[in-house]
Design a protein around this nucleic acid. Sequence first.
DNA 1: TAAGTTTATGCAAATCTTTGCAACTACGAA
DNA 2: TTCGTAGTTGCAAAGATTTGCATAAACTTA
Lengths: 146, 146
Amino acid sequence: MSCGKRLAEQLHERGYRVTAQRTIILETIAHMEDHISAQQVYEGARERLPGLNLATVYRTVESLKGAGMINMLSTGGEPMRFSLCDPEHPHSHLVCRECGSIFEVEAEEIEAFARRVEEITSFRIDSVHLTLEGLCQICKQKQAAP
Amino acid sequence: MSCGKRLAEQLHERGYRVTAQRTIILETIAHMEDHISAQQVYEGARERLPGLNLATVYRTVESLKGAGMINMLSTGGEPMRFSLCDPEHPHSHLVCRECGSIFEVEAEEIEAFARRVEEITSFRIDSVHLTLEGLCQICKQKQAAP
DNA sequence: TAAGTTTATGCAAATCTTTGCAACTACGAA
DNA sequence: TTCGTAGTTGCAAAGATTTGCATAAACTTA
Ligand SMILES: [Mn+2]
Ligand SMILES: [Mn+2]
Ligand SMILES: [Zn+2]
Ligand SMILES: [Zn+2]
């Protein structure tokens, strides 16, 4: 089965309608290496669906997030970015507040932390795709030696 | 010493210039009970500084964040909100994706988690003021019984 | 397959946030 | 105190994101 077809099926299973827009937007995000902005999703998807509207991109990523199929990443200042959820490779993001670079970190501690919060609060935590801000190694060193 | 004066002093110590705008915006955030939006900061601060511009509010909260004096909280969909950092009471936020309500959670696990990430990555984590999304107890129960 | 119902989309307008630039101000040095 | 410089601000314009509404498409049921 094609990648797009499998993704569409997942969408359907989770109670979302399968539209051309959703399918193509999802594939566009899936096939990109990096985390991409709404504008980039729009440009990529519009090649296969010329009538597509940017507002639909925003509404769709909201739905895809709700379906647990994509992650949203907000890096200080810059526009929101999106990436496909990979259950095999859950991770969080570190964003350097100096140079803006993004690192991924797999930390099994995250899941434990989320479960602990659920215990304390009786909330049900959906997303543990965290974004932490700080200084990357390079910017940290630069700041140490002025 | 007045609350505003102490805050201004902290700002100065951290290498930021102390302007009327910054002082008043900081006090406005400090004196609000809840986390407030840029628009609310603007309206509050403008009572004491009529010429204030909304763009200055946005630039100022960015600076105050950089100085480690306020927290930013982005609740899915809604505009960004701000609150004063209280070193005595560090906490994270839980946002219900159904009803939008916000809960605070003090979890000593957060700090440990951040330090662990620093070990793994050689990043320096600044902010561990996390926002986790999920379902609050009420919305969780509603969803269980349809 | 043919409605009927519900949800999604496009479009345009509103809202929220960032930015370029010229005038202004804080603050350290003289 | 005065001056020089780098950092801030207001304003207007641009960029990003959300929303209301009429139309169109997806799914349900018959
Ligand atoms: Mn990622
Ligand atoms: Mn808080
Ligand atoms: Zn960096
Ligand atoms: Zn709720």
